[in-house]
């Protein structure tokens, strides 16, 4: 046991290694040590969902984990969704349906919806609403986000 620990983690296919103070949150590690600022901090107490990322294939609040916990893990952030300059179908659907305004909640919303569609490729509007209910959006009133996710689901099924 020592104060500072070396963390090595694969994020969006790249390996990042850094010495971390144990108290460094995973969100701050991703944002500041790895420079991946697409993961946003809206509350730092696990309610708003803006920092939602994928850790070993499942969504997690990056503000509620410490960097030292993820040594050896595989992480996907919003920056890992597009291939090259090509938005993925979910991102495209958000663009088509005005599923974002300020864009601050969007990263977490996309990660949350990604998992939702993996588990349920044909959700109802109600299921989408419940699925994203842990992610706060202050701009859209949600309806356009629901439409975006449903449109993405349809496109991804076909």
């Amino acid at each position: 046991m020592s104060d500072s620990q070396t963390v090595s983690v694969t994020i969006n296919g790249h390996v990042y290694t850094a010495d971390c103070d144990p108290r460094l949150t995973l969100a701050d590690f991703i944002r500041h040590k790895c420079g991946l600022t697409g993961t946003h901090l809206g509350c730092e107490h696990g309610v708003c969902g803006a920092c939602t990322i994928m850790v070993d294939g499942r969504t997690a609040r990056a503000c509620l984990m410490l960097a030292v916990q993820v040594d050896g893990s595989t992480i996907t952030t919003v920056e890992g969704l597009a291939s090259g300059n090509e938005l993925n179908p979910l991102q495209e659907a958000f663009w088509d349906n005005h599923g974002l305004q300020c864009g601050f909640c969007t990263s977490g919303m996309l990660m949350c919806a990604t998992e939702l569609l993996e588990e349920n490729p044909d959700p109802s509007a109600e299921e989408v609403r419940e699925g994203i209910s842990g992610n706060l959006c202050r701009c859209t009133g949600y309806d356009s986000i629901v439409k975006s996710v449903l449109a993405a689901a349809e496109k991804m099924r076909s």
Partner: peptide, 19 residues
Amino acid sequence: VRRTEDPRLLAGRGQYIDD
């Protein structure tokens, strides 16, 4: 018209104050 702002925001390329 689809928003010109969106692709970079969707890709996590926005730059907010804390970024």
